[in-house]
Simulated assay, not measured.
Amino acid sequence: MTGAQLEMPGMPRRLFPATPSKLATFSDCPRRYRFAYLDRPSPPKGPPWAHNSVGSAVHAALRSWWELPAHERTPRAARQLLYGHWSDAGFADAEQSATWRARAAGWLDEYVPTLDPDDEPAGTERQVAATTERLAITGRVDRIDLRTGDDGDELVVVDYKTGRHPSTEDDARGSPALALYVLGVRRTLRRPCSRVELHHLPSGTVAAFEHTDRSLANHVRRAEDVAADITAATAAREEGAADDEAFPPVPGQQCGWCDFRSSCPTGRAAAPPRETWSFLPT
């Protein structure tokens, strides 16, 4: 029996449980979505990636830094926290790992002095949630700042980035995840929130955008469209459609770094495998 069949006449529409990563996975490749969220047991994933190890360590260090007493929030403390969270996973060897650990520590040495240790965030690694007409949205925000502006206090969504390229205003405006986080922050913390910021630590730059009701509505509409496609594909599979008919692969260069490459002949034929350290920022 499908989810649609379980709904009774007159009952409210069942909301689709959505996270930004879940929606993005289906948009990128429906087969990958099936592997990640539907197939049980899920196919084995490939090896870890060095750039993910870098990003995870930096995020964890900054989260832990804000958990320290204010007088202990120093650049040296951030560096030590990074060392404690560091993982060698995905690097070519110990030497490459050590080089990138030192480089990431340098990012923190430059970034942490731009922060006011006494300015407590409204949240770090904060889980937020909201609902729309069709979605039950959840997500985890790197940091939520409380800023005072001309119109009073407002919350700001801050997302740390450690990738190759500095973030742009287009990135901030076009990010579905940041837009959904704004909705989640508004609903969870019950305060105004419109501004999103991408803090790119390697370059020390900040890209920002002020969302409007219209821009948020556009993001919600697109997210609901993706959720509707997922629901239709899932129902088709439950009703007997072949896996690849309901959740077709979308081959391309991205197949070279897909976590499920070993389980996807289409992906292996589409692109050669990438080294697990090939996406480290230059």
Rank of each mutant, 00 (worst) to 15 (best):
T282M: 10
R34N: 09
R190L: 14
R147C: 05
R134D: 13
V206N: 05
R237M: 14
D39W: 06
H59D: 00
L146P: 00
E154D: 10
D243L: 14
T19K: 06
R134E: 14
A172T: 06
H51I: 09
A77T: 02
F35M: 12
A172E: 04
P248Y: 01
D171I: 03
S215K: 07
A105Y: 06
L216G: 02
R237H: 15
P30D: 02
V185C: 07
T19Q: 08
R40G: 08
D171W: 06
P273C: 05
D225G: 08
W107P: 01
L201T: 01
S87M: 08
L62G: 02
R237F: 15
C255D: 00
D116E: 11
L68T: 01
A104Y: 04
R14M: 08
V226R: 04
P202Y: 07
I230T: 11
T132L: 10
D225F: 04
A177P: 02
F16Y: 10
Q96V: 01
A4G: 13
H211K: 11
D170M: 13
L68I: 04
F279S: 15
A269E: 11
E110Q: 13
L68W: 01
Q127V: 15
D153E: 15
Y37W: 10
A60T: 10
H85N: 10
M11R: 09
A223V: 05
A92C: 10
P117T: 07
G10R: 05
C258D: 02
P41N: 07
H199A: 09
G163H: 08
A217W: 03
A122N: 05
T114R: 14
A61P: 03
H59V: 00
E154C: 09
W66A: 00
H51N: 13
T234D: 11
R190Q: 15
R261M: 08
D151T: 12
P75K: 05
L183T: 10
D243N: 07
F260S: 04
T124C: 09
A236R: 15
L68Y: 01
A208M: 06
G106M: 13
L82D: 01
A179C: 11
D225M: 07
A122G: 14
A92R: 15
L135W: 11
S87A: 12
V196D: 02
D93N: 15
E197R: 14
R268M: 15
W66K: 02
M8W: 12
L155C: 10
D28V: 12
L201V: 01
T19V: 03
A246I: 07
R191S: 15
P48Q: 01
Y181A: 06
E125Q: 02
Y33V: 02
P192S: 12
A177N: 09
E7W: 07
L81Q: 05
E154M: 07
R126M: 11
G139V: 01
R195D: 00
L183Q: 10
L108A: 09
L180S: 04
A78Q: 08
P17Q: 08
R76W: 06
H200C: 12
G90H: 05
L6Q: 12
W107F: 12
G149C: 12
A77P: 03
P273V: 09
A207Q: 07
R173P: 03
R268W: 01
R40T: 14
P249S: 00
A241I: 07
L189G: 03
